[in-house]
Computed example of a mutant assay.
Amino acid sequence: MKLLTFDLTQKQYDEFFAPIRSKVEIILLLMKIIKYMLIEPPVEAPKNSFYMILKVSKMSRIFLISPKKHFSISFPFTVINPDDKVYFKSKNLDSISSKMTSDVIGFFNKNNSLSSSSIYDFVEPIDELTLEEPGTWQFIKELMLFEEGYIRYDHDEKHEDGDNHPLHHLDVFYSSSPTFKIGLKTGYKKLELLDLLDLENTCKYLS
């Protein structure tokens, strides 16, 4: 079991806690998280009120924690943690480099290829990236197919509306069609979402 904790700067907090509405935004978030973890060493305990935990055991998940919002997504890569360094590999890449994360971020940011009606608007930019790094297409395919497992705890005073929008609730899924809320009688403390989702713990009951 690996449990790695990372303090977040204000810049990372602003980026990582931005609202998520699409699979592309999940992919971009994941790439930014990996880029950050490749640079910043894990810490013994968080010093800030917002931080990030990577837990790998029977489950593999990233948890982002702040005073009023905690959320988690699946982490689909292998974690290698010799000494104080952290490295990652995927099914098709022996090492996920910072350059690879930049290439993926650039691909999804600069090319509106997923909304294009032409397949060539999607294929041509990938062909260009693959000439430089042969594993790029396989990596992008992994990202597009992985199951996100998104869940968020909110303490939402602004939109509170009785049982229609409880002050404390879980949001399951991120896009408008499948998402739903589970009301909570009390708020979650810092690691309660991690405990809820940890497959090594006993199950929690809704009723």
Score class of each variant (00 low, 15 high):
K2Y: 15
L3T: 07
L4F: 10
T5H: 09
F6T: 04
F6Q: 03
D7G: 15
L8S: 07
T9P: 03
Q10I: 09
Q12F: 06
D14F: 00
F16H: 06
P19D: 05
I20P: 03
V24W: 03
I26L: 06
L30M: 04
K32R: 10
I33Q: 02
K35N: 14
L38K: 07
L38T: 15
I39P: 01
E40L: 05
E40A: 06
E40I: 13
P41W: 04
V43Q: 07
E44C: 12
A45H: 10
S49N: 05
Y51P: 09
Y51C: 07
L54P: 01
K55A: 12
K55L: 04
K55P: 02
S57F: 02
K58I: 11
M59D: 14
I62E: 00
I62Y: 01
F63Y: 14
L64P: 01
I65Q: 01
P67A: 07
K68V: 15
K68M: 12
F71Q: 03
S72Y: 11
I73T: 15
I73S: 11
F75Q: 07
P76N: 15
P76Q: 13
F77C: 07
F77M: 09
I80A: 09
I80W: 11
N81D: 15
P82A: 06
K85L: 08
K85E: 14
V86D: 04
Y87W: 02
F88R: 08
F88A: 01
F88M: 08
F88H: 03
K89W: 03
K91E: 11
N92Q: 02
L93K: 09
S102G: 13
D103S: 06
D103I: 10
V104M: 06
I105P: 01
G106L: 03
N111H: 10
S115W: 00
S115M: 00
S116F: 02
S116Y: 00
S116C: 01
S117T: 08
Y120I: 10
D121R: 09
D121P: 01
F122Y: 15
F122L: 15
E124A: 05
D127A: 03
D127F: 14
L129R: 05
L131F: 14
L131D: 08
E132I: 07
G135F: 11
I140M: 06
K141C: 08
K141L: 07
K141I: 11
M144S: 12
M144F: 11
R152I: 09
D154G: 08
E157P: 10
E157W: 11
E160H: 06
D163L: 12
H165G: 03
L167C: 02
L170D: 13
D171H: 12
S175V: 02
P178W: 05
I182M: 01
G183P: 09
L184D: 04
L184R: 01
L184T: 14
K185Y: 11
T186S: 06
K190F: 01
E192F: 07
E192V: 05
L193E: 06
D198A: 08
D198C: 06
E200Q: 10
Y205H: 10
Y205L: 10
Y205W: 09
